[in-house]
Design a binder for these strands. Structure first.
Length: 504
RNA sequence: GCUCCGGUGGUGUAGCCCGGCCAAUCAUACGGGACUCUCGAUCCCGUGACCCGGGUUCAAAUCCCGGCCGGAGCACCA
């Protein structure tokens, strides 16, 4: 991000104001934001590992708190042990990926561990007769909601309500028998707002708190209380939660609290992935279509990490999406461009010959050592052995026509001979009119070759071939396989190299 | 069906609250050229947008109304 700071040093002070402006303009201004007083949160349900979508939540909230020098809180909204059941490992994954994304929370909250806190507040509401236990079935209540009629339980007295509440807690009711509803307005013009559920009975084991509770708050209740307690000033979340504000405001009014400023963004569709829900991914992993949650073909942050993406590139990409309420359909090409900017300068270059074909160079005067730059921008060299027997990729070979002049990059220039015999004729050590983009190809002698498989970014996609041995020293790094793509060397061993496709 | 929200170049985005400095920003993509012994990078140059129709106004991408299109919610999910 700041690698070019030196360049700007001379212009220095004069530029500072500009840079500041540009930095802030990564995101539009936040309404009512006072420097040092902004508190924001990212509130995931850890029912799978973070994806690009969740990362957006982390990064945008984090970026704003950084701009305004505020506080960032991660809160796990994990109050449904059944339908959207949290995954135990995913709590850790979220924290790890957040750290990797340079999102450093000031606090981490687990809603499931604070359930007694929510009990206290609903009790107050019950006392105030602003909430009531409702024995209607879903279907029954839906009728009331749709027709705007109050249900018979609505005017239960505080005393009775509290009694039912205690019985709920002690397990005297079955699931579905009774819920606690918040009184809003059964005539509210938007049916979605009418007397919503704050607590329900779920007799199911919770990954984090086991069977300690059987009465769980809904997201709307839990997050309403938490946002106030945590002193959240600004909420940015998906527009699927847009109604939450109107629902939760009733509670805020009953208690005389001030509701945070909210902003909502639309759905993100990534061209390359289509729509993939967490549950859909889980299914496909189980069926073997994907290797696991970090399969390079998946839009999880773990997968992008495995592919060698830079956190900063992902941040920039996500920030470029802004916070508009419209749905966006964006191509990963933008992410690639962002990452390439960072990775191009430091990635070592290597020859990777996929779908290799062995060809012979006739008339090669001598075998030579070929030295080439590891990276066009520095002087570090790598060495290859130019032999008369070499490997080129089938893609190139098929393109060649007899008589073509071809430059074997760094080695020599040849003329394509009899294609059936796979022969090349040595022409010169010099370039001999070879032009970039035309006929300069990469190659490899057996001497330098080691088996290499590149795991692709689509399900089941793999390339097999040979890579130059020099690459074994770059395990864990992103390198560029020339004329192929940027790849991360994942494993290098006796039997070869495994690399992960990063991007073109 | 009911409620709410949004529509700026191919894509994403800034600007819209507080009309004029917007013949509209930036990025990416695309086209052309230069350079480099990578189909990568770099450097030039270029194409390209305010959904439509009315209204208010000296002046509208910005305000108002209508239409069209798109999206979200209407769960004892998050």
């Amino acid at each position: 991000m700041t690698s070019s700071v030196k360049k700007g040093e001379i212009e220095g002070i004069e530029e500072t104001g500009k840079i500041e402006k540009i930095k802030k303009r990564k995101l539009p201004e936040l309404p009512n934001a006072e420097e040092g007083k902004v508190v924001m949160r990212f509130a995931p349900n850890p029912n799978g590992p973070p994806t690009l979508g969740s990362a957006r939540g982390m990064v945008v909230n984090d970026e704003y708190t950084k701009i305004y020098k505020g506080k960032m809180i991660i809160r796990f909204d994990d109050t449904d042990p059944r339908i959207k059941r949290p995954m135990l490992e995913a709590y850790r994954w979220y924290l790890e990926d957040a750290e990797w994304l340079n999102v450093k929370p000031h606090k981490v909250i687990y809603a499931s561990k604070r359930i007694p806190l929510y009990y206290r507040y609903i009790k107050k509401l019950l006392e105030m007769e602003k909430a009531y236990p409702c024995f209607c079935s879903r279907e029954e209540f839906k009728k009331y909601r749709d027709s705007g009629i109050e249900c018979p339980h609505r005017n239960t007295s505080a005393e009775q309500s509290l009694e039912v509440w205690e019985r709920m807690l002690s397990g005297e009711y079955e699931e579905g028998e009774v819920v606690i509803r918040i009184k809003t307005d059964m005539k509210h013009k938007d049916p979605a707002i009418r007397d919503w559920v704050a607590f329900r009975i779920v007799k199911s084991d919770h990954p984090l708190v086991g069977d300690r509770y059987i009465v769980y708050p809904t997201l709307d209740f839990e997050s309403a209380i938490e946002d106030h307690i945590l002193g959240i000033t600004h909420i940015i979340r998906g527009k699927d939660l847009i109604d939450s504000e109107r629902r939760q405001r009733y509670i805020y009014n009953y208690f005389g609290w001030k509701y945070p400023v909210t902003k909502h963004w639309g759905r993100v569709k990534i061209h390359e992935f289509g729509k993939l829900s967490t549950s859909e991914i889980r299914k496909r992993i189980e069926s073997g279509e994907y290797e696991g949650w970090d399969d390079p073909a998946l839009p999880t942050i773990r997968a992008f990490r495995r592919r060698g993406f830079k956190a900063e590139a992902i941040r920039e990409f996500l920030l470029s999406l802004g916070v508009g309420e419209n749905d966006v359909a964006v191509s990963l090409k933008n992410l690639y461009a962002e990452n390439r900017k960072l990775v191009d300068k430091e990635a070592n270059r290597y020859f990777f010959v996929w779908n290799p074909i062995e060809v012979k160079i006739e008339g090669l005067p001598e075998k030579v050592k070929v030295k080439m730059q590891k990276n066009p921008e520095n002087d570090e060299l790598r060495e290859l052995y130019g032999d008369e027997s070499i490997l080129v990729t089938e893609d190139d070979w098929n393109r060649f026509k007899e008589g073509d002049i071809v430059r074997l990059k760094g080695f020599c220039t040849v003329r394509v001979g009899d294609k059936k015999d796979r022969k090349l004729e040595f022409l010169s050590w010099e370039m001999k009119g070879a032009k970039k983009g035309k006929n300069i190809v990469h190659w490899l002698s057996w001497h330098d070759s080691i088996v290499c498989v590149v795991v692709g970014d689509k399900p089941m996609l793999k390339w097999g071939g040979f890579v130059e041995k020099n690459a074994v020293h770059d395990v864990g790094k992103v390198v560029q396989f020339e004329r192929f793509a940027f790849c991360k060397i994942e494993i290098a061993g006796e039997d070869g190299i495994r690399a992960i496709y990063t991007h073109p």
